[in-house]
Design a protein around this nucleic acid. Sequence first.
DNA 1: GCCGTTTTCGGCCCGACTGTTTTCAGTCG
Length: 576
Amino acid sequence: MGTNRELARIFEEIALILELEEVEWKPRAYRNAANGIENLSEDVRDIYKKGGQEALDEIPGVGKGIAKKIAEYLETGRVTKLQELRKKYPRSISALVTLEGMGPKKVKRLVKELRITSTDSLEKAARQHKIQRLEGFGAKSEEDILNAIRTQKVSKGRMLQDKAMEVAEEIVSYLKKNAPVDRLDYVGSLRRMKETIGDIDILAVSKSGQKVMDVFTKMDGVKSVLAKGTTRSSVVLEEDNIQVDIRVVPESSYAAALIYFTGSKAHNIALRKVAISKRWKLSEYGLFTRQGKKIPFRTEEALYKKLGLSFIPPELRENRGEIEAVKKGKLPDIVALNDIKGDLQTHTIYSDGTRSVEDMVKAAQDMGYEYMAITDHSESARIAGGMDRRKLEKQLKEIEKVSKRHKIKVLKGAEVNILKDGKLDYPDSVLKRLDIVVAAVHSSFKMPKREMTKRIIKALENPYVDILAHPTGRMIGKRKGYDADFERIFEAAAENGKALEINSEPQRLDLNDENILMAKRFNALFCINTDAHDTAGLNMMKYGVGQARRAWLTKKDVVNTWPYNQLKKVFKRIPD
DNA sequence: GCCGTTTTCGGCCCGACTGTTTTCAGTCG
């Protein structure tokens, strides 16, 4: 976890405990500060090193008081204020608010009246029916608490984007067919292309909210109905306990609702503040004057325009400076899926792919790509069916043959292992015959930080390496990335003119948006690949592009948006 | 505790749903 994140967590915990203590306004201040810190593109440590406490004061949401606490943390590794607060509310109590339906007020009473100190003691109290004896709680409250604890134990996390997308698209098309809706879209973090999705949000326009809710709550696969009203309902699906929320709004509110439910929350708050500065009020129902008169508009674009802004793509709506940028006319024209002209990491049956060279080439051509690379695994990747020299020779010939039958340019490549000592798995004599070399770590994941950093940097200094694939090695929900100094690695990539891969595989999404932002500071170049092992895998490109968009990348930053004749600027050995 | 082209003091985002307290507080997004 980076320093920024650690500090953000600390201030969030302070905010929560102050809420439990019913301190006024300060919780919000600490939350704002946490948010401001989390959205910095620079490491707080660097800011402090360069400008001291006064520089910290410049961080949005951070004033003198919090700047002092940041400095204390950077100097000593702790924040006294939090240590003191934790004496009264240990971390196990703070964790209680992560349960569905539990907020600071309820937690406070449970702690005070039943001496609850953790999820476990809460569960015990609920089972012994001690909770329903408290005023304001009943039998249902007890049941809800037990359910919430169970759900947290089971799902304990978020789903991958492709899963969420699949489920969302299915529900959207079902409701369009079976419910009286005029418009219907998925919104929320899925529309913003966040790397993982908590629950699925759907927005609809209908003259009969009641009927839509009836259809929605009775869909196949609904396990339980958490809430059902005429404008808002929530269900949990059988499948992985996925929660789906739906909102129905009138046509006249649709654009405002689209913005509101797409979020992020931080972006919405910032937009409301812009509205307030114009003496208006913004809600999911629209924009209103102080007298309550509705200011009409029909599209998201139109609302942004009314607020004196231009359209902000959903992926940028994180209150990471997008509103300020758009005010100054400095919002970049971010990369889009149809800018992609080629996929430079794909596999075939020559290693661990399941389709032939011919199939993959044809599929890529059908997607409208101008070029692609076939990059099967190198020799030492035995588990992945890595190619020895002879197999490689055979594949190179086949690629040449297939290539002649298709218009798309097919680059002869390989995904070459970075060995423990930073050397590559093929000798230079082999590497130089390849059009493109994708280097990656596939073994010894647990090396000490310094050695791992050295290992990867050494590979980046190899003149035949073109792309560093899935640079951090993380797998969402499965394993953390390598322990390495990625700032130095990204810098080395930029200096050596190597592209950093944004791997589109939903479980990888490596680099993610934060890493990309960090690498961009060094003017690194990026390449968005799918790492496809079959033809369907080529369609994962949208998830990688989503990460790039979230990190404000433009076509200039992403080499595989460039036409073939410009690729030579980065990939030195590709044929004309 | 933070913030400021109306402000260095007085604000700080808004509305729906639920359970339970028959008039609303708490939670959520």
